[in-house]
């Protein structure tokens, strides 16, 4: 393998995991915009996406496209349920209290996953049969292309939704000024509910497309969730473009570091970057989103 081919290989795998980090980071971002909290159950949405897909394929015997849609929809529903049943009824509006509710929800979900799906790794089939493809010296599978293509499509749909539909604009309005949004006749509770459902859908989608490449078990989303969070911070917490850029950057850095240094330090990279960002701009990236309000 030449140096160039190796580089192409790292780029390919970096973009693939980076896409997943971006999807998870977008989920964090959506909920932050709507409620100013960090949703620690975002990673579990990813696990659930994979687990639902597995069950719908193997237990229910559904065809892959149908299982795909239902798995994503199911996680969206779980996201909505988290808001409706745990966040909205909370007596306190204190961000710290709400964040701990998501921590509890995360542990609760993981407990249920372990009961239903067990602790062992499950074999998730790829969306289309694995064959080795070659491009510019990089070897990859069709699943890599599915991940890249579906992520791109999801980002395009999301951006269309927020730019071109009235509901999407109403959600941005709630993020910008909830009081004024209510005065315009926008049901702010409902928009927050939609944010959680969308975040669920994004997490579920990430889980469905990445688990054939990584592995699938009840807590596969935990590490991915943390990496997605690191991506969101890296990109500037609360910014959609930042989430995408941060996700791709982290995926690429991780993949290059694995190649140049050692795969043993793969997970370390994400957190060194997270710490570095927080040290260099303490609170700065987080603070920006709040300054936007005029």
């Amino acid at each position: 393998m030449t140096g160039g081919e190796q580089l192409a290989q790292y780029l390919m795998s970096g973009l693939t995991t980076g896409s997943i980090y971006a999807l998870v980071a977008l989920g964090f971002c959506l909920i932050h915009k709507a409620t100013h909290i960090v949703n620690f159950a975002q990673g579990d949405f990813l696990s659930l996406g994979g687990l639902m897909m597995y069950s719908l394929l193997h237990w229910a015997g559904l065809p892959a496209p149908l299982a795909f849609v239902l798995a994503v929809a199911a996680v969206a529903l779980v996201g909505a349920a988290l808001e409706r049943l745990a966040i909205r009824p909370a007596k306190s509006r204190d961000a710290m209290v709400l964040i701990f509710i998501t921590v509890a929800a995360s542990m609760f979900m993981r407990g249920i996953f372990k009961e239903v799906w067990g602790k062992q790794a499950l074999a998730m089939p790829p969306l289309s049969p694995d064959v080795a493809l070659k491009f510019l010296g990089a070897t990859f599978t069709p699943q890599n292309l599915w991940v890249l293509g579906i992520t791109l499509a999801a980002i395009a749909l999301l951006s269309f939704f927020f730019r071109a539909t009235l509901t999407g604009k109403a959600m941005r309005a709630v993020a910008a000024n909830p009081r004024a949004a209510a005065l315009m006749g926008i049901d702010t509770d409902r928009m927050v509910l939609y944010s959680f459902a969308l975040a669920g859908a994004l997490g579920g989608l990430a889980g469905v497309i990445i688990t054939p490449i990584t592995t699938l078990n009840y807590q596969v989303g935990v590490m991915m969730g943390l990496k997605g969070f690191a991506s969101a911070v890296l990109g500037g917490y609360g910014s959609f473009t930042g989430a995408i850029a941060g996700g791709l950057a982290l995926g690429l850095l991780e993949s290059l570091a694995t190649g140049v240094v050692s795969s043993a330090y793969k997970d370390l990279i994400a957190f060194v970057i997270l710490l570095a960002v927080l040290f260099v701009r303490p609170g700065g990236l987080l603070g920006r989103a709040q300054q936007v309000r005029v």
Binding site: K169, A170, R172, A173, A176, N177, R179, M184, V292, V294
Partner: peptide
């Protein structure tokens, strides 16, 4: 209490929400 990051047009559209 405008929606500061949204465009003037979007603010008007949301007025008719």
């Amino acid at each position: 209490q405008l929606f500061a990051p949204l465009s003037v047009r979007e603010n008007l559209e949301l007025g008719a929400f």
